[in-house]
Amino acid sequence: MSKPKLIDENGLRVDGRRPDELRPIKMEVGVLEKTDGSAYIEVGGTRIYAGVIGPREVHPKHLELPDRGVLNCRYHMASFSVDERKPLGMTRREIELSKILREALETVVLLEEFPRMMVDIFVEVIQADGGTRTAGITAASLALADAGIPMTDIISATAVGKVEGTLVLDINEFEDKYGEADMPVAVAPQLNSIVLLQLNGRMTVEEVERGLEMAQAAIKKIREIQVDALKRRYRVEPEGLEA
């Protein structure tokens, strides 16, 4: 199959976006009843649920740490989330992403606040259209905040890609498939630190630097949506607490 045209003569992308434009994002907090905290996120065609259970007793017991808590993260894609049915169970990719997500979240969660305990984070991809790890981490940090887990910051994430020599923000699955590079970036904005940075494909040093700047600017917008989603969840409660 010949390579499709990813950027048209007007400089617009396959889905009509400008290179520095995000896909429409929707977030909701507190969507699952049986978890201690949960969040739902939609980034274009990507749809993800994140649930958090805990802090609770560590299982299996030998993972318990006497001075701090343990995070357990599971990134999983539904069989129907991709074009070709994904077999049941955890694939190598899912196991790797679980670890990546856990390590990113460990940088913001104040683990010392819950020794001998464990927090489970479940990230379920319902529909995948590119950027599932970045959307997953965004939703997971919202779910953690909803669960009342002490954290230094809320993580926001997006990806920068390169298609036909142009740097584009928040690439979708089509651009990921036929483009030249994909660079997911996750940032803790208050700490001003990058907690996740991967690069798949080839980019020059200047492109990486410019890509990071683009991602940082977009993350400001994503953060606003996150804050709004969290505030919407607890909007009505202030008068309720008169002890």
């Binding site: 507190g30 201690d36 905290g37 805990g54 802090p55 609770r56 104040l110 606040e113 905040a145 909803d146 669960a147 009342g148 887990i149 002490p150 954290m151 230094t152 208050q190 969290l230 607890y234 409660e237 202030p238 607490l241």
Partner: peptide, 23 residues
Amino acid sequence: YASTTGLVRVVNDVVRIIPLSGR
């Protein structure tokens, strides 16, 4: 800085947060 989601209050000159959710 805040580390949890909740309502802030100043009690005895100390800033504390009353959590709204969680275990």
